[in-house]
Design a protein around this nucleic acid. Structure first.
Lengths: 343, 343
DNA sequence: TTTAGCACTCAATGGCTTAGAGTGCTAACA
DNA sequence: TGTTAGCACTCTAAGCCATTGAGTGCTAAA
């Protein structure tokens, strides 16, 4: 059976309607709301065909029909016109980056927030992936006679800097010497190449202060291992706005899903490095996500991918809005980061 | 009418039962489960008295009874024995602070998490209140020829340090001079005393680099104004575990409540500075909280209150557990911060 | 003062009916 | 041959009603 133009028009009407109402769509509704110039009976026949072709599903005989994942895919690839963001929305985004220069985590956290504000879905942002980040400089900055700040400067902005306790009798010169040792070992290496054993190897240079060495090893490995899977969220409670999540059990399982960092991490780190990726319902590799869609993109410094951003919502998603917001956001963030830290 | 010993025993049984089941408690249940040596009819009479005295309420005639806020207050003040935490729980808490020295925000964020893990309620932690924090040192640390790190060292650990853009032609000496100016102006002042006009007043010293000055003013005011109302959460979805929040509307309104930072901020900043404060249902000044209880305490460095911690849950809360966890946590956190930044 | 007994109340449960939205088929029509 | 009106059929959701049972309050006896 061929998907002729009339079928396409009807399919589009059904998808549009279902996206906005979340109710199964009947033939009469289509005939009334979208005047396609044919009667409900004709539409009924076409709908029956569309079901046979796999684009529609029927929850039960006496209900209307809902689009299948295949229909959404067709919609996203062919039907939908990506409408650009409203002026005020792009302004909001730009505003976020204008003048504001602060910790990269801050920026990313705000990115998540604004993305969920614009789309009304939940947004997920993966913090920069350490493995690809190169250390430009390590320095111990003295704070007082018992504390110092271990600052790791990377080509993606400052990383979590860490306060470390130092033995009381250590002076600035000594800290400088240690900074030099650290630099010699790690400068221009990526975090993936960092080997903490190297540091243990120079234990003798620390003389009697081997406890300081241990503290440093701790601090470094902390930064290395943990920050890697940092995930930021925006609009986690937005899910309650959707009728399909008015059921506590479903809402809860959605919120639990968000806490499965491992899964989200895998999901978002396998994203195309260019443009916006859309993953619909059962296209997702994970069971838990078979009723959700994910719109994602990466953000970069120059050409190097740092991390990724995702929007997650019901398969009945306003793809057009979500995709355009994602596209604009990822580009703006990348542009901003590149101008700040890029070479 | 007097609250004689038998009434108290019955009241206690009812409260205990309701706390663990969330179901209205009937006279027969009490007679069966807690053998008080009297029949259900006697208990019935006593319950009727307790209701008249305001300790019990009846959702409807043919249901059992539930404790009133007055009953919980009595329970917390007189009846309840605070049971101390399990060994493994205190171990978990200590573990959190052992060796781990990092940004104060990190510590606070983890505090929220562990508190909610132990109690199964939602925890709320107010970041250190800037007004009382004293600046010990301000320094601009050069990163590369376009960026510097503005580090503000306080008597409560490092504050959010900020990356600032600097004009390309500025050298380390110049940054040092600026650091000195900043120190002269702000050292040993609390954030409450910081007046950004002071900085504007030295504009001439910046010579042609007045854009750098503006950046610094921005960065400082950012730290000053925003961080002040930072709130960290733990276990926000724990609320779904309680039968009284199986209703989406209620669950949603609870989650919305958590986003009312202004309100939570007011609520938690008016807490007794010593010991644990318990605020039950309608005792709370806000309408939205009349079905919740809040257990809170402050954390300090030495004697100076920095911020506060709260646990929020249904009025039917396991007060004993919540209070002991809160007590232990606040003390441990204060001890840790004092040993690190105190004096 | 305590307790057994009993009538009474009321939310919750489950079965039953009805209403209505929607389908699919058939037959007539252009 | 494609389109449409008409109609019987299906199935969920909503409303209604009777039943159940947990729990109370009162009374009278121990």
């Amino acid at each position: 059976m061929r998907l002729d133009e009339r079928k396409v028009r009807i399919l589009q009407a059904i998808i549009d309607d279902f996206i906005s109402t979340a109710e199964p769509v009947g033939s009469r509704t289509i005939a009334r709301k979208y005047n396609l110039g044919v009667s409900s009976a004709t539409i009924r026949n076409e709908m029956s065909d569309l079901e046979e072709m796999g684009y529609l599903e029927q929850p039960h005989t006496s209900a209307g029909r809902i689009p299948s994942d295949k229909a959404y895919r067709f919609y996203v690839d062919r039907l939908m016109k990506v409408k650009s963001l409203k002026k005020e929305e792009t302004e909001n985004i730009k505003q976020l980056y204008r003048n504001k220069i602060s910790q990269i985590e801050q920026v990313i956290c705000n990115t998540a927030k604004i993305l969920s504000d614009i789309t009304n879905y939940t947004s997920i942002v993966l913090a920069p992936q350490m493995n690809s980040i190169v250390i430009k400089h390590i320095q111990l900055v003295p704070i007082d006679n018992r504390l110092a700040l271990l600052v790791i400067v990377t080509n993606a902005g400052i990383l979590k800097d860490t306060v470390v306790k130092i033995p009381e009798d250590i002076d600035a010169d000594y800290l400088n010497r240690i900074s030099n040792i650290l630099n010699k070992l790690y400068k221009n290496k990526s975090f993936g190449q960092v080997n903490l054993d190297d540091l243990a190897g120079v234990r003798k240079e620390f003389a009697r202060n081997s406890s300081l060495l241990d503290t440093l090893i701790d601090a470094l490995s902390d930064n290395y291992s943990k920050a890697d899977k940092d995930i930021y969220y925006g609009g986690t409670t937005n899910i309650f706005n959707f009728p399909e999540y008015q059921d506590v059990v479903r809402a809860k399982s959605f919120l639990n899903l968000l806490e499965e960092k491992e899964l989200l991490y895998k999901l978002l780190s396998n994203v195309e490095s260019d443009g916006v990726t859309v993953s619909i319902g059962t296209e997702n590799p994970y069971e838990e996500l078979r009723e959700c869609s994910i719109v994602s993109a990466t953000y970069k410094i120059g050409d190097r991918v740092l991390g990724s951003i995702g929007i997650i919502g019901p398969t009945r998603m306003e793809y057009s809005k979500a995709i355009s917001a994602m596209d604009y956001m990822a580009k703006t963030l990348s542009y901003y980061l590149t101008s700040l830290y890029g070479k």
